[in-house]
Design a binder for these strands. Structure first.
Lengths: 177, 177
DNA sequence: CAGTTAATGTTGCGATCGCAAGAAACTCTC
DNA sequence: GAGAGTTTCTTGCGATCGCAACATTAACTG
C-alpha cells in the first residue's frame, strides 16, 4: 500500500530496503524520538534540558572548565546563534559565565561556575540512571558493542562525507572520548 | 576530569557506565544528531522536511489515503497543535487536504492529494538512497539485525514504561510495519 | 603599514513545536 | 433528553533554533 509500487518504469529505482533493513530502519526511526523524550523528561527533574546538560558535561571535561564558544558549538552540533541563546539562559541561571579570551579578543569563553558544577554533579547520577533504564540496561554485551560499532561507523561516514574543510574541529574530538 | 569524581561519599552513586557502555553511548549521542541533519539536508532537495515526508508516508500507507489527526499525531510522536501547524503548511503546499469525518464530526481527516502522492513518489528513491548512504550501507548484516533488535527493545521498553492508557494508538502500529 | 580576507560572536527574523485554554462534538448517566 | 465528563482539534503564547546580516578582531598580502 505504500509508495513502493512497481508501476513507474520511467523513474530510476534505487535498491529498496529488504525486510531486515526495513525492520531496522523502522525500529530506529520510530523509537529514537521517544528515547530522547524520555531522557528529556527524566532530566527535567534536575531542572535541566539535555542541551544544558551537554554544555555542562563538555565544560566540566575541559582543562580549565572553559571552552571557546565556537568549539563548544561544534561539539554540540549547534549553530553559533543557537549556542549564544542557550548560554544566555545558562548564564541567567548562574551555571556558566562568559569571559573574554586574553589571547584572542574575538573569542568568548564559556566557563563553568561552581553552581554549574554542583548542578551537574547532582544531575549526573540521575541521568546515568536514565540512560541505563531506557537504553543500556536493555541490551546485552554484544548489542552494546554493536551499538558502538554502528554509530562509530555512521559518525565516521558523516564526518568524511561533506567535510574536507575545518579539520581543527575534528582535532578537538579527541578530548571528548 | 569529568564529573565522575569519587570524592563525594554522601551522594548516592549509581553504576557508572563502564568503558564499552561509555563508548556506545558517546558514539550514539554524538552521531545521531548529525545523522538526522544529513537526512534533512538530502530531503530538502525534494522540497520536503523529514516531518513532511513522514506525514506523506503514513498517509500513503493508510487504507483510504487518509488518517485522523489524533492518530497521525500519535504515529508522528507530535503534539496535536504541532500536527495542526504542520498540516497547515502541507495543505498550503497542496500535498494534503483536510476533510471532516462523516462518522464523528469532531475528527478532521488528513487526506493525501494526488500532488502529495507525486511528491512522495519522487522523493522516496532519494530518501532511500540517503538512508542507505548514511546508515544501512555502512553496516553489515549482523549489525543491521542488531540495530533492529536494539531499537525494538528500546521501543518496547518505552511503550511499556509510562503507557497503560491509550492502547488504540498501539493497535494502529501494526499497519506501519 | 594599508587593505583585504577570514574567523568569532551577537542580533533580527522566521519556522517549528509544546503547553494551556477554549470550542465543538460525542458518550454516558440518571 | 438534560447535564456532566471525555475526546478532538485549533489558537495564543512562549521557548528553541537556524539563516542572514552585522560588528569586532585577527591574519595575511603586497
Amino acid at each position: 500500500m505504500g509508495v513502493v509500487s512497481d508501476n513507474e518504469p520511467s523513474r530510476p529505482q534505487p535498491r529498496w530496503l529488504d525486510e531486515e533493513e526495513q525492520a531496522a530502519w523502522r525500529a530506529f526511526i520510530e523509537s529514537v524520538g521517544d528515547l530522547f523524550s524520555a531522557f528529556e523528561t527524566d532530566l527535567a527533574d534536575s531542572g535541566l534540558t539535555m542541551g544544558d546538560y551537554q554544555v555542562l558535561v563538555y565544560l566540566s571535561e575541559a582543562d580549565d572548565q572553559a571552552l571557546r564558544m565556537c568549539d563548544l558549538a561544534r561539539m554540540l552540533q549547534l549553530s553559533p546563534s543557537g549556542l549564544t541563546r542557550r548560554l544566555d539562559g545558562m548564564v541567567t541561571s548562574g551555571w556558566v559565565q562568559r569571559r573574554h579570551s586574553q589571547v584572542d579578543r574575538r573569542v568568548m569563553l564559556a566557563e563553568l561556575t561552581a553552581a554549574g558544577r554542583e548542578v551537574l554533579e547532582r544531575a549526573a547520577p540521575q541521568h546515568v540512571h536514565s540512560v541505563r533504564a531506557h537504553l543500556i540496561d536493555r541490551l546485552d554485551r554484544t548489542q552494546i558493542r554493536t551499538l558502538a560499532e554502528i554509530f562509530t561507523a555512521v559518525g565516521d561516514g558523516l564526518r568524511g562525507d561533506a567535510d574536507d574543510a575545518r579539520r581543527p574541529g575534528a582535532a578537538l574530538s579527541g578530548s571528548v572520548a
